[in-house]
Design a protein around this nucleic acid. Structure first.
Length: 293
DNA sequence: TTAGGGTTACAG
DNA sequence: CTGTAACCCTAA
């Protein structure tokens, strides 16, 4: 009786995105407890949040792909942006065990600019973006910004922040910049990354698929400022960054192999196999570091 | 409490 | 009828 289906409103969705941005994925209870979101999400349970987030990502993946394909048919837009959100790297925020192992990969880098807690939530998301986009040559600022804007709530000064962070990450060696394209710094730690059967490649997509889910910018300036200060004081999560980098290399390997293969149009199979591979890689990494998908 | 598989309701 | 989104069940 009472509940035919309670569809999510844009406000709720925005709150969820902001919540994930703030607390991280999987922290549904935290998001729900946050006084800032609890008001909007009062009628939602932690499970609801989880399910909704799953739906958002699912539609983001498939939606982007097929819409891009359709758009490609209509117009012959030629832009190369691969929307492929499948990697979510999360790390327990505080007291959890964090082995120094992953940090070893970092070996002395993280202080090039003098700050110790450089790794913020935004940086993780940034790394996630590059990882997930899986663009062979790396991703440019527009792609990264677009990814973050679509998947999470749009922050007003995101681009400025992004530019700063990118510069910082390049400076400390986390990222490399090659002709306006950013990619995870090379540092091969993945052993058997190359030996995958591989299938057929990937489809090219146009970028501007942001038209649909608009109106997400409900964050007030005060809120944003609060977010920023919190981001800056967030505990370092080098493990996640290291894991992201390692996984990224695996995925880049796939992407390059696919690029070599060229042609074909099995986007579905491609996504599936890539996912399987990435999952395997993540599992391998998981035993060494704390990676959760 | 969360992740993931499965199920139902609704829209196209 | 089919696909998608909200909802449910359950192992870990």
């Amino acid at each position: 009786m009472g509940a035919p289906k309670q569809k999510w409103t844009a406000e709720e969705e925005a709150a969820l995105k902001a919540g994930v941005l703030k607390h991280g994925t999987g922290k549904w209870r935290n998001i729900l407890s946050d006084p800032e979101f609890s008001s909007v999400l009062r009628s939602r349970s932690n499970v609801d949040l989880k399910d909704k987030w799953r739906n958002i990502n699912a539609t983001a993946i498939w939606g982007s792909r097929q819409k891009a394909k359709l758009a490609l048919k209509r117009n012959q837009m030629a832009a190369q942006h691969d929307d492929n959100h499948m990697a979510l790297i999360t790390v327990p925020s505080s007291e959890e065990v964090v082995d120094p192992k992953p940090l070893a990969i970092y070996s002395g880098t993280p202080r090039a600019t003098g700050s110790k807690k450089l790794i913020s939530r935004l940086e993780n998301i940034l790394l996630e973006a590059i990882t997930s986009l899986r663009e062979p040559g790396g991703s440019d600022r527009a792609s990264i910004a677009l990814y973050i804007e679509e998947k999470y709530a749009a922050l007003p000064n995101l681009k400025k922040l992004l530019a700063t962070k990118l510069k910082l990450l390049v400076a400390n060696g986390t990222l490399t910049k090659v002709k306006h394209k950013y990619r995870i710094a090379p540092h091969s730690t993945i052993s058997e990354a190359r030996r995958t059967p591989l299938l057929a490649l990937e489809g090219r997509q146009n970028d501007s698929s942001k038209a649909e889910k608009k109106g997400i910018n409900l964050l007030t300036k005060t809120q944003v400022d609060a977010e920023l200060s919190k981001m800056k004081s967030m505990t370092a999560e080098e493990a996640a960054a290291a894991a992201a980098r390692a996984v990224a290399e695996a995925e880049v390997a796939i992407a390059e192999a696919e690029k070599a293969a060229r042609e074909a149009e099995a986007a579905e199979a491609e996504a599936e196999a890539a996912k399987i591979f990435a999952k395997a890689a993540a599992k391998a990494l998981k035993s060494r570091m704390l990676v959760t998908w």
